[in-house]
Simulated assay, not measured.
Amino acid sequence: MPIRIPSRTDITDDTPLRLEAAAALGWPAGGMTVAALRREIASGRLAAEFLAGKHWTTLAAIRELRERCRVQVTETVPVPRMTVAAGRSEAIHESAALTALERLVSTPIKRGAGLTMRGGRGAYSKRGVGREVAKGEEA
């Protein structure tokens, strides 16, 4: 049975509201569900009361939840790129190391390549190494 959502003029910040009403009043454009509010209560981010088998919360608690969950913008500091100058071996080594690291990170890992279990005894071997290959079979 749908509940009656009170008018905004009929309530204060401390008026107990059922979760359906709190979701409708706290997020007028929609997007917040009763289930999501219950998850916030369970995680301890939303203050609520449990009376007569029902969850109740207030607009003040909704406001505190939104403040607690607000994303903080952090300033990112750009890493300066070293330019290779003649006679500066430190810059050359740092630039080469950075290039190698970028190449390593951007290289996709191929599935099925590398080490595999053999015989269930905990011994590892490269795929195809150490076993006979029958005619027409690929290693």
Rank of each mutant, 00 (worst) to 15 (best):
Q72K: 15
A60T: 15
R66Q: 13
R88Q: 12
V84E: 12
H55L: 09
A85R: 14
R45E: 08
R39E: 01
M82Q: 12
A91I: 03
M82W: 12
G87K: 10
V77L: 08
A60C: 05
L46A: 01
E90R: 13
G53T: 11
L51G: 15
V73G: 09
E67Y: 04
W56D: 01
E64L: 09
A97V: 08
A91E: 10
Q72S: 13
H93A: 14
M32E: 05
L37K: 01
G44T: 08
C69L: 13
R68T: 12
A60V: 06
Q72V: 10
K54W: 09
T58A: 05
E67W: 04
A36T: 03
R81M: 09
S43Y: 02
L101R: 15
G53H: 03
L51Y: 11
L101T: 15
I62P: 02
A60I: 04
W56G: 03
V84W: 04
T83R: 13
R38W: 00
R39K: 09
R63P: 01
E90I: 13
T58C: 03
R45A: 07
T83S: 07
A100S: 08
T33E: 04
A42E: 02
R88G: 05
R66T: 13
A52T: 13
A91S: 14
R63G: 03
T83M: 10
G44C: 03
S95C: 15
R39A: 04
T58P: 05
L46N: 00
H55G: 04
L59R: 12
A61I: 05
